[in-house]
Simulated scan of single mutants.
Amino acid sequence: MATQQRRERERARRASLIVSAAREMAEAEGWDSVTIRKLADRIEYSQPVLYGHFAGRGAIVDAVALEGFEELAESMERARTSAEDGGELEAMAQAYLDFAAAKPAVFEAMFTLAEGLQFGDEALEPLKAGFASLYAVFAPLAGEGQDPETLTETGWAAIHGLATLNRDGRLRPGLQSQRLQILLQRFRGGSGA
């Protein structure tokens, strides 16, 4: 029994090492530089060892994305629950934007590269937790006759759009705070119409 537990711990440690190395490489050099061969060289294991943990590069990207969703959900929830009354939406939105700016490769894995993660009703728990934080701040803003989940999806899409366009250098620099304030005012200004 003790031998089996030790093997399981060692396996989990190697998987974590692979995911951490992939994140570091992607943040430093972009996802195109992350290959099974380069990962194996970096962590000093053979390629078959990596394939023993992950079916391929896509599965590693999915693991990085899942970690990212866990971190983003925790960050948004921490921001939301520690904000002053009335400041929850802004705090949560800022946490989202900060995460996207601080971890661009992880953000890319989460929303562009991940292939094996389901959203919506079939989502894994970290994805549901992130949506729950969003829902907690947007649902109370739903006007009469509005579906709170649809309003939450719309709010998420707007914040995500700001994060993505800013990250990709598609917006004029130095105006992110102003853009966020405009967006928040639109949502706070009533039923979201």
Rank of each mutant, 00 (worst) to 15 (best):
A2Q: 13
A2E: 15
Q4V: 11
Q4H: 14
Q5W: 11
Q5Y: 09
R6D: 14
R7W: 13
R7P: 12
R9N: 13
R9S: 11
R9C: 13
R9P: 13
R11Q: 14
R13E: 15
R13D: 13
R13Q: 12
R14I: 01
R14N: 10
R14W: 10
A15R: 06
S16M: 09
I18L: 01
V19G: 00
A21I: 01
A21F: 04
A22P: 11
R23G: 02
M25W: 08
M25G: 04
A26W: 07
A26S: 06
E29L: 08
E29W: 12
G30N: 06
S33A: 15
V34Q: 12
T35F: 12
T35S: 14
R37H: 15
K38L: 14
L39C: 15
L39V: 06
A40P: 14
D41H: 15
D41F: 14
R42A: 13
E44A: 10
Y45K: 05
S46G: 10
P48E: 09
V49R: 14
L50C: 08
L50I: 03
G52W: 09
H53D: 11
F54L: 03
A59G: 05
A59K: 02
I60F: 07
V61G: 03
D62W: 02
V64P: 05
E67N: 09
E67F: 03
F69E: 01
F69N: 08
E70A: 12
E70C: 06
E71R: 14
E71T: 10
E71D: 14
A73T: 08
S75I: 08
M76F: 11
M76Q: 14
E77I: 11
R78T: 15
A79K: 11
R80F: 14
S82E: 15
D85K: 14
E90I: 01
E90P: 11
A91K: 05
A91Q: 06
M92S: 11
A93W: 06
A95I: 02
A95L: 01
A95N: 03
Y96F: 05
Y96G: 03
F99G: 01
A101L: 03
K103A: 01
K103I: 03
P104E: 03
P104D: 05
A105R: 00
A105Q: 00
V106S: 07
V106N: 08
V106L: 02
V106H: 05
F107H: 07
A109M: 00
M110S: 00
F111L: 00
F111Q: 00
F111D: 07
F111P: 02
T112A: 07
A114P: 00
L117R: 04
L117F: 04
Q118D: 12
F119C: 04
G120C: 06
G120I: 03
D121R: 00
E122V: 01
E122L: 02
E125V: 04
K128Q: 15
K128A: 12
G130E: 13
F131T: 12
A132T: 12
A132F: 07
Y135S: 04
Y135T: 04
A136M: 04
A136C: 02
F138W: 05
A139L: 00
P140D: 07
A142Y: 04
A142P: 00
A142G: 03
G143P: 00
